[in-house]
Design a protein around this nucleic acid. Structure first.
Lengths: 158, 158
DNA sequence: GCATCCTGGTTGAGAGTTCAATTGTTTGGC
DNA sequence: GCCAAACAATTGAACTCTCAACCAGGATGC
């Protein structure tokens, strides 16, 4: 499985990689703390965002799972929590008896609106403001390439 | 707490931010799968790396926590697992009766050597190869800025 | 019509993480 | 020397995530 021919990272690559790991961890932490005052985790927040953008504010479980890059099982658990909180509701899918649609409630929308302010402010503060616009957009483009290499179809259920 | 003056992300920023989230999630997933064949999680792997680089292959718990950007408590739990596996050992810190030193064992070093091949290959595959060298290094520099903005001292116990 | 397979979604157990509370040590004022 | 405050690390409970097993409902072959 492993052989001696692995090409190690040179010092610059090493440094870049460590910054990646460190930044990702710190950014996550900041955003988590921002959302917790709205009783939302980051994964939960993303689900609400996707639902709010969907036609009729509803999506099938599997579509939703792909959009937020979650496993089916993880989505089920997370949606359970959101449903318990009253921010989301489930209903059977009319076209497909196996399917389940997930629907953003009005309460969910209200929560989302409130949380979005905090969240966007956090994103600006940690990721956008420290960089020039060009740097930030370049970052985005690089990461688009990275994501597309791993999951070209754009719909990965992990 | 929230007011109406929040500046929302424009479409390009939006796109960049979503790529960030998506890429980070996908990269994490790939690396996790790479390490699992060595029975290591990514946080565990990082701990072994830091120990292997430290003088005498040992660090105090709090230093280690800062290096890998973990909370104290999380580090304790993770080190418990590593200790149970025999890859790490604890000993009291001679200078400070409160302190505990964490030490990489020979078995731990061997495991680390094996896992490093898989891991570095994974990092290359998902993060380095899809980009030009300049792009990758620019990514690293941007993320260094991001990390330093959040945690200027470079020693954040989260 | 029914046996088989595939897909959408859920469940439960086990592992990992967070938070608040706890134990034990050192430090600093007096 | 003593007491309070600060610090290092650990603990346990509650919660989240992963994986593998499961239970439908649809599609396919005959």
């Amino acid at each position: 499985m492993e052989n001696a021919s692995t090409r190690w990272l040179d010092p610059q690559e090493q440094q870049a990689w460590r910054s990646y790991v460190r930044a990702v961890r710190l950014v996550d932490e900041v955003l988590r703390r921002g959302l917790e005052e709205h009783e939302l985790s980051h994964p939960e927040y993303e689900i609400l965002v996707r639902l709010s953008e969907a036609p009729g504010r509803a999506l099938r479980m599997s579509e939703l799972a792909d959009e937020v890059v979650n496993s089916r099982s993880r989505l089920t658990h997370t949606v359970n929590r959101l449903e318990r909180a009253g921010w989301v509701a489930r209903r059977p899918c009319p076209q497909d008896g196996r399917g389940v649609e997930c629907l953003l409630t009005d309460a969910g929308f209200t929560t989302l609106e409130a949380a979005a302010h905090t969240h966007v402010r956090g994103v600006r503060e940690v990721l956008i403001d420290p960089l020039t616009r060009a740097e930030f957009l370049a970052l985005g483009e690089s990461l688009t390439k990275v994501a597309n290499r791993i999951d070209p179809a754009g719909r990965c259920a992990v």
